[in-house]
């Protein structure tokens, strides 16, 4: 089983499903996803567009309702908790979004936006708000003068650092980061990655990292789940999944995105075509693009263990 009910997990997702009605048909954005995240670990979720990874992030934070399944945080079922009761828990789980410029109200000064999250802290008083905002800015290496500006006057990298400082203001146990570097220049993404790694050390923070950028996932994650069209196709320790990928999709993805590999690309793992907008089929979702596709792939595929902690949704995969 991919999510052993170990009593120690901070976050547990069981058979989560999220469907949207779209143009008559239903889109299964998240289709039976299960995972568990241990305290203090960085769990990476990799996928491209249509994989459902961003929807998963929002499900975990109850920013959109589950269609089916269960989510538990810190030992407590949260999917059925009404918003009023859940509100207090929000200080323990926060999210950082992809585009820092969109994450801040353009009409609010930065300091006011920080205050919106500082007030989540227990023992918060308006009097100390200004000082705490200054401390938050300093903790991510920024000059407090930046607090008096509007978001449009701050560079992307600095704004993303402020966004992280803001989301950490309430000292959450879990931080979900959704594509934290994708809107930023490549030369700056290291700044964000290193900042998150430092914060994890300093606060014993648990991080769920959603990204399509494999370099970032590789740099940060302890464990990784690869998603394709709403399902997890491979899950396991980061080193295993990213160095010795077992699923054809993971292999194709790695080959397409690795700078070093591009120079020496053999093309053997190449995925044909692109994501089709077909409705969910019962068999393997990669059928029309997989270089190894066979008749048996039309049957429902489930996650099966490969090695210790490493599972893959492909009957052909070998360690």
């Amino acid at each position: 089983m991919s999510s052993p009910l170990s009593g120690t997990a901070l976050l547990e997702v069981e058979e989560a499903e999220k469907t949207f009605p779209a143009d008559g048909a239903t889109v299964r954005a998240v289709d039976g996803v299960s995972l568990s995240v241990e305290p203090g670990e960085i769990f990476g979720v990799v996928g491209e567009s249509g994989s459902g990874k961003s929807t998963l992030a929002r499900l975990v934070l109850k920013l959109t309702p589950l269609t089916a399944g269960r989510i538990s945080f810190d030992g407590e079922r949260i999917d059925e908790l009404p918003e009023k009761r859940f509100r207090e828990r929000r200080r323990d789980m926060q999210i950082v979004l992809q585009d820092p410029l969109a994450s801040f109200d353009p009409r609010w000064k930065i300091t006011r936006s920080m205050g919106e999250f500082l007030q989540l802290r227990s023992g918060f008083t308006k009097a100390t708000a200004a000082q705490e905002a200054v401390a938050a800015a300093a903790s991510v290496g920024l000059d407090p003068a930046i607090l008096d500006r509007y978001p449009a006057q701050v560079s992307g990298g600095q704004l993303q650092r402020l966004s992280i400082a803001r989301s950490l203001a309430s000292n959450p146990k879990l931080l979900v980061v959704d594509e934290p570097t994708s809107s930023l220049d490549v030369s700056i993404r290291g700044q964000i990655v290193n900042l998150l790694l430092d914060e994890r050390e300093a606060r014993q923070l648990t991080i769920v990292l959603i990204s399509h950028d494999l370099s970032v996932v590789r740099a940060m994650s302890d464990r990784v789940a690869v998603m394709y069209r709403g399902q997890i196709v491979e899950i396991g320790p980061a080193a295993d999944v990213l160095e010795r990928p077992a699923h054809p999709y993971t292999r194709g993805l790695l080959e397409a995105t690795s700078f070093a590999r591009r120079k020496a690309a053999t093309g053997s793992a190449r995925l044909r075509g692109e994501l089709a907008d077909d409705e969910a089929c019962t068999g393997c979702r990669l059928l029309d693009r997989c270089p190894l596709a066979e008749e048996r792939c039309r049957e429902t595929q489930s996650l099966r263990p490969l090695t210790e902690g490493h599972e893959v949704r492909c009957w052909k995969a070998t360690a």
Binding site: G190, N194, L197, R218, A219
Partner: peptide, 10 residues
């Protein structure tokens, strides 16, 4: 980038 751990940045 090939390793895990801190990333290079400018």
């Amino acid at each position: 980038v090939t390793e895990s751990g801190r990333m290079r940045a400018i």
